[in-house]
Nucleic acid binder design. Sequence first.
DNA 1: TTTGATGCAAAACGTTTGCACGGCA
DNA 2: TGCCGTGCAAACGTTTTGCATCAAA
Lengths: 168, 168
Amino acid sequence: MDQKSKVDVHRQLAIFSNFLRKRGLKITNQRLLVAEKIFGMHNHFTVDSLAEDLKDRRQEISRATIYRIVSVMVEAGVLTEHNFGQNARYYEHIPTQCHHDHILCVDCGRIEEFVNDDIERLQNKIAKSHGFELQDHALNLYGHCRELKETGKCARRNVNPEDQIDLG
Amino acid sequence: MDQKSKVDVHRQLAIFSNFLRKRGLKITNQRLLVAEKIFGMHNHFTVDSLAEDLKDRRQEISRATIYRIVSVMVEAGVLTEHNFGQNARYYEHIPTQCHHDHILCVDCGRIEEFVNDDIERLQNKIAKSHGFELQDHALNLYGHCRELKETGKCARRNVNPEDQIDLG
DNA sequence: TTTGATGCAAAACGTTTGCACGGCA
DNA sequence: TGCCGTGCAAACGTTTTGCATCAAA
């Protein structure tokens, strides 16, 4: 991690700690460790993969606790939850980019991000025309990325299945 | 159900039966009952709510079987699966409208449908720019519908929880 | 000291599966 | 008759929860 990232992580930890304090929640070792790990990541993860990543710590953190911490972080607004169509929920650390949507490869599980202001505007228009006050949205595109077509194979089979998307 | 709908249901049953025959799958009572029920519905449902709806039949159909039939119907292309962000998968009978997206009320669970060609076009453009060959997409808008604001209350609390969306 | 957080194990939930039986082709 | 579909119950994977213990405030 470069110097700038470290500073970012600390700033985000401070924001999260503040949230905990304001809500009368305790600032525990587990909460700080989980939050630090997440703030240092810039990819999508599941509770399961996060638990694996946290195994290198001196004392392992239980899954029940990770589930509880993750949901506090979602409430705090520093984490978003995604339903990409599989069994497990995916999470993503927010600060990377304020808002974006996802495009997923059905072959290799690759997840890329995009922003499109025109679509955002159209969504607002549609909501209004249905008499809805828009709160949130999820836009996921599913397709085949270049890799399989160009190289004849892709990551799907060679990678730890826990790190990937299975769109079956 | 009006006369036209009944004809539609029969036409769709014929299409589904054809699919079964072509694939060497058997045309069983359970498959016909489940398909008929689904073809007669024009809303979104879960396997659970479907099982409840089928309880008024002479002999109840087991959930395992319903799961199996539903997945055959998805393969047959007469049913689509949605992930609206809750635990259970939602299904929807296709013929209603060829393709559409959804807008969901976070208060009462109402689900409305929309189509927007501009968004479809933009999605294709985005996929292309990422080097993806677009296969499918999911666009869900979440917001507050008029009901709660205008009447001060909404369906959420008065309805069988199994029939609704819980975006909690 | 008080209260909330943690870890464990068990429960809960939606979904899938192995197997013996039954019904379609 | 042969083989696939069904129903049951058990297994499954993810998530939640009850409870005793532990640690932050």
